[in-house]
Design a protein around this nucleic acid. Sequence first.
DNA 1: GTAGGGTTAG
Length: 579
Amino acid sequence: MSVLEPLLKKCVTISHIKQLQAHLLISGVFDSYPFTRAKFLDFCAVSAAGSLLYARQIFRHITFPVTNDWNAVIRGLAQSDTPLDAITLYCQGLRFLPCKPDALTCSFALKACARTLACNEAMQVHSQVVRHGFVGDVLLQTTLLDVYAKCGELDNACKLFDEMSVRDVTCWNAIIAGLAQGNRPDEALKFFKTMRDVGFKPNGITVLGALSACAQLGAVQQGENVYSYIRDQNLDMNEQVCNVVIDMFGKCGYVGKAYHVFNNMRCRKTIVTWNTMIMVLGTNGEGVEALQLFERMSKEGFRPDNVSYLAVLCACNHVGMVDEGVKLFETMVKDGSVIPNIKHYGTMVDLLGRAGRLKEAYDIINSIPITPDIVLWQTLLGACKTYGNVETAEKASRKLVEMGSSSDGDFVLLSNIYAAQHRWKDVGRVRGNMKIKEVKKVPGFSYIDVNGVIHKFVNGDQTHSNLQEIYRKLEEIYVSRIMEHGYVPETDYVLHDIGLEEKENALSYHSEKLAVAFGLLSINDENTAIRVNKNLRICGDCHEVMKLVSKAYKREIIVRDRTRFHRFKDGMCSCKDYW
DNA sequence: GTAGGGTTAG
């Protein structure tokens, strides 16, 4: 039986595999020893030397396939780029299989569900796991947990985790990564802490999830803690870990810390390392540095890939280096080594649009070889708002409606464009459509890290324990401080809320303002910047207020919004009001 | 012991 293994190891091409197959056929192994055959089939379906297509052919010619034969092909399909086929085959197997699925069959089917985000199918496999008595299997439990988490069923994932009677590091990893990727970073960090409290030792994979959670929260202190653990355990010998550390510091707004990690890595840099650092520089408004790094990477032998180009184009976008961006894009296209994708085009539309070159932006959308998506038209619409271009805005809006967008931002933008032209009838029409279409409003929230504790504020927050004090501070900010510096509310943005009943969503109680008020109250050291992270893009009024607060209170305020950083100092913002 | 957890992105 074990005679096969050394032979398989020697197969490095499909022709070797076919020779081995011939041998197995002639010697009768293929028909008489199904387990050996299945092992061979598995190798053919999964290994780099093999061919999934060929494995499927072989499989089709097996008259009485055993469970392991099915497993081999399902496994291969599950990790291929057509994982849906694995689910199809699994269902066929259930119908025709004289032999029953085993734990592995379920495991591979679930893997396929995870990759296709097929939640309903996953639930059906789950029920078969129960029916066949595999529920006690820790590995399968972890796989199930992972599928649910990836499908966005985080509560189910947590439930599975709670019900596990035996836990190991891997299932902790699955729940931590699941929560982090599912936008529940605070819970991810809680699990990370508990895991250590009950005596498990986080490994290189655990810290990836924890760091991602810190990055989302802007929780630099907790990020530092994770990083020192990483160094203690020598986990920084893994470049993937280093990449995520760099990303975390960058997303927390500490470019220097990110750069320090980048420059002092104890392991090799990969293309992802370079891309991450370029992206960090870009989002933090260090466009020139990003460009320099982009040039340096080629000199050090790394050929820029599509993400490298995207990163450097974003960098140009954030600092308004329009000509450089256009030039880079042209080089990219001419060079031919990178085929532009929808994100490259999106960045170009944004870059040109925000520079007021709306015609060129519009032309790009109409000339690209791929179908423009919703984001592309939204980007153009945003530019139309900035430059008050009603005509192009209407075109973009029409496209968005056609494409079935139900994002509140699209309607609000168009309504604002009409409002700026005093076309109140059109404003009313757009608002009417908003009601009819039941547009989704993504609730805005902000985080602030005070002494390592993360505080979360939602728009019009009514839940924070220091509520009264915070609202009083906000009152003080408005009445006795920034009014003197010439604050005029940007009523343009009030239109966001017209037609919506929730009064608490009013402009003055946007979550980032509450967070900054809380920051002023609780961070007394004047040299410490007030750092706020927000899930949406900052609105014009908040932007203005931040500028004035930075001047009136002589405090640096750093706001990370959905796409970039704003550093407010002495009444100015690092984005130079260009965002 | 042939299974489970994982990096950059408009």
